[in-house]
């Protein structure tokens, strides 16, 4: 956590992308803003020393999940006015209030956070994370593959017109 300028630049990109998701009128623009936000977030992960997570963030999120979003947005081909409809002002006010409250709480916790001193810094390289993933967390890892299989089959069963 040495370079303030790098952090503030990446945080700016991330927040700009997130605001784009919140405010964009057209869903394609919202998806592309989320890509920008995820790239900024990936840079922040690199700053935090989580290299493996940063790489799969780009590969899985920006590469696979958001392409799926783009496919569906373009496949459904809805009218833009239908896609950008918002809830009533009461709902939006309540949403902003709740979000602000949560943010205030998080900021309060973050300010008074006890940070243990003298912690050995760890680097989330592929070797380190992979070693942990295939020894201590081997069973959750296999269960995750089963979950992905169920997800794939479920998506096909749901979206196919006739089986």
């Amino acid at each position: 956590m040495e370079s303030p300028i790098l952090f503030y630049g990446l945080a700016f990109v991330t927040l700009l992308g997130a605001l784009g998701v919140l405010l964009a009128r057209h869903p394609v623009y919202a998806v592309l803003s989320l890509v920008a936000a995820l790239f900024g977030l990936s840079g922040l992960f690199v700053l935090l020393g989580a290299f493996f997570v940063a790489a799969i963030q780009i590969l899985v999120y920006a590469g696979a999940i958001l392409v799926l979003f783009l496919f569906v947005v373009m496949l459904l081909d809805l009218r833009p006015d239908e896609l950008s409809r918002l809830r009533s002002a009461t709902w939006r006010g309540a949403a902003l209030g709740l979000g602000g409250l949560l943010f205030w709480q998080t900021a309060r916790v973050a300010r008074t956070l006890p940070i243990p001193a003298g912690v050995q810094p760890v680097e989330g390289t592929v070797v380190a994370v992979g070693k942990l993933l295939f020894t201590t967390y081997a069973l959750p890892f296999e269960a995750a593959s089963l979950l992905l299989l169920v997800g794939v089959i479920g998506a096909v069963v749901l979206a196919k017109k006739k089986l």
């Binding site: 927040l15 997130a18 949403a95 709740l98 979000g99 943010f103 900021a107």
Partner: peptide, 27 residues
């Protein structure tokens, strides 16, 4: 200098924006 609390505040901000989006969109 940037400390861990900066990252946590950014995380809270992202969460708040996401929550506001999820609650205010109809689509």
């Amino acid at each position: 200098p940037v400390g861990p609390s900066h990252y946590l505040v950014l995380s809270g901000l992202l969460f708040a924006i996401g929550l506001a989006g999820a609650a205010s969109r109809r689509n």
